[in-house]
Amino acid sequence: MNLVELHGRSLELAAGVVGTVQPEQLVLPTPCAGWSLRRLLEHLVGQQLGFTAAARGAGPDLACWRDVPVAGDPAGAFRHSAARLAAAFARAAAAPDPAPLWLPEVRADEPVPFHAAVGFHLLDTLVHAWDVAVSLGSPARLVAAVEAEPELAGTLLAVAGAVPAGPADRGPGQAFTAPGTPTGAAGPFDRALALLGRDPAWALPLR
């Protein structure tokens, strides 16, 4: 698969996770500090529409990146925005030399090369899909599905390893926290999570 196809696969796997969310679960906490499951899903949909606008040539307009209310149908909102993004990426990738994308939430001063942008959203999709799955108490199926596809798992790990990890890039207000140290037996998904500051052993707080 090429990178755009792998990205499409990441959307499919994430949609499978989001499709299991029940309305009463939208209040659950997530590994994203201070975010409920509803807030996380609204962020996911907003990001998909933001990347869609960028792939269609939008400039550095933060208005394109607002979180989007998911109302009573988070799975439908996710699938609809994912389909729009997949089509926009496919159309942009068909150009002989795809134009870079403006991603003001990632880099405000200049556009990001197309394939780097696709890779970053692949990473964001799978990591946030894990956030959703672990909030529901069932991340193992997603992790196994990704690791059953070595090309997808390898891409996830490679992109995670390329995310800047300096003090100015990680911490409060940033997308990721300081990298952790995975265990020796960790698979590629858990190693990617640790590189991004996620705790692969995160679980819902006991009530």
Rank of each mutant, 00 (worst) to 15 (best):
A14Q: 09
G180F: 00
N2L: 08
A144Y: 11
T155K: 12
A33M: 10
A185I: 13
A87W: 01
L196H: 00
A168N: 08
D199P: 04
E24Y: 01
A165G: 11
Q174M: 12
A153D: 03
R141Y: 08
G184M: 09
V4Q: 01
L49S: 10
R84C: 12
Q25S: 15
Q47T: 08
L11P: 00
A185H: 14
G34Q: 13
N2A: 12
A63K: 04
L103R: 04
A99D: 14
R79E: 01
R198V: 03
R79D: 02
D61L: 07
G184Y: 07
P29N: 13
T181P: 02
E149Y: 02
V118W: 03
A83S: 12
G76K: 10
A15S: 14
A53L: 04
L103W: 05
L26F: 01
L49Q: 14
G72R: 09
A94K: 05
V21Q: 02
L26V: 04
G50T: 00
P98Q: 11
A94T: 04
G119W: 01
R198S: 05
R198I: 02
L85N: 00
A55E: 03
A178Y: 00
P200V: 15
P182I: 07
V132G: 03
P104Y: 06
G19A: 00
G154R: 11
G8I: 04
R198G: 01
P167R: 09
A87E: 15
A165Y: 03
P167F: 08
A194H: 09
E42M: 09
Q174A: 13
V4W: 05
L85D: 03
P100Y: 04
E24P: 02
W130N: 04
G166E: 04
R56K: 10
T181G: 05
A129I: 01
G173P: 07
R9L: 11
L103V: 10
L206S: 15
G137N: 05
H115L: 14
G57P: 03
A140S: 13
A175V: 13
H80S: 13
A75M: 04
D61N: 14
P172W: 11
V18C: 07
E5W: 01
L206Y: 12
D199K: 08
R9P: 00
